[in-house]
Amino acid sequence: METLIALIDQNEIFTFSALVHYWDGMVNTVQLVFLSLLAGLILAVPLAIMRTSKNPFINYPVWFYTYIFRGTPLLIQLYMIYYGVTLIDGIQDSVWWVIFEHAYYPCLIAFGLNTAAYTTEIFRGVIEATDQGEIEAAKAYGMGWAKRMRRIILPSAFRRAIPAYSNEVIFMLHGSAIASTVTILDLTGAARDIYAQHYTAFPPFMFAAALYLALTFTIILIFKQLENRLLAHLQPR
């Protein structure tokens, strides 16, 4: 422990306060990504069900939403929501300003809507790939549409969505790095601050990269565990 303190004392870049700065950034990154994913997941379930509808008036609006959000860069979406809201006339005097004063909420909205679009398409894919025999069996048991969805289609679809969804989680983690461009102190923002103090690029960004790598591996590990548990029945024997 003493040697560690001595090591930190000797270091010019990674001082104690710098390490605290990184920690704050990492907490913000994890929090932002987690909340965005949660919001995206909650939005995506009804949207995916609507997306599989045969009625074009239900299906097309959702298709339009996912097409727009998947076809444009996340950075543009963030800028539109962040600058779009903060530059509206009179917003700074309204009650909404309490929420939009900080970049955090526009950022959360942009990330949440973005990941919801990708997650919707992932869920649509697995819902449509549900074994026809299972649906016929459910119908033969006299289950209605809602019961079929709840008991048969969704539980199996969620399980089969796990591998694709784990990729989306990692993309969201990596995408969240742009939060630093709208004044949020995330992990990338912390590295940029340290860079601005010392004007050497390698140590601060390498350290941030290593932390992101660790987060990525953690996510992969968690999803591997989940897959082993929930997709055991699909493993090759």
Partner: peptide, 18 residues
Amino acid sequence: RGVPDLVLMFLIYYGGLN
């Protein structure tokens, strides 16, 4: 593939500048 594009961009760009 484990590190955000933006961080790599800063690393290569500012690092290259240094």
